[in-house]
Design a protein around this nucleic acid. Structure first.
Length: 117
DNA sequence: TTTATGGCTGTCA
DNA sequence: ATGACAGCCATAA
């Protein structure tokens, strides 16, 4: 693997690591924050290449539609949903996450749970 | 080298 | 609301 790609991966991981518990971010959002606007797909690859003990909360990254993307290995999407629920991110009735509520904003834009309906 | 394929996204029907 | 299409670019073969 080329070093430039490695660097990008590290940036991506650094961003994903910042996502707080109970929050989610989209692939595109992570890409932009990592300084790679438009490389959302690459974020998916970076996370896919991740090893298990890396400490990177890959499950907090979902697609722009607020859904858990289906991946190569069947059953993993369920695992991801479980992990999210364990952190307090509950999926809507159609297996969708309300991005309006759970989207992570690095610049303090946080939604108070007490304020939520 | 070229091709095919993806843990995506935005736009349009 | 869902589905098809086209960009984007790193990996794998």
């Amino acid at each position: 693997m080329a070093e430039s790609a490695q660097r990008s991966y590290e940036r991506i991981y650094a961003i994903v690591r910042r996502i707080p518990r109970g929050r989610v971010a989209t692939y595109g959002q992570v890409a932009t924050l990592a300084g790679l606007p438009g490389h959302a797909r690459q974020v998916g690859y970076a996370l896919h290449a991740l090893s298990e003990g890396s400490g990177v909360p890959w499950h907090r990254v979902i697609n722009a539609q607020g859904r858990v993307s289906p991946r190569a290995a069947p059953g993993w999407d369920d695992v991801q949903r479980q992990l999210l629920e364990r952190e307090g991110v509950f999926l809507g009735h159609s297996g969708r996450v309300s991005l309006e509520r759970y989207r992570w904003n690095p610049r303090t834009r946080r939604i108070s749970p007490a304020l939520a309906p």
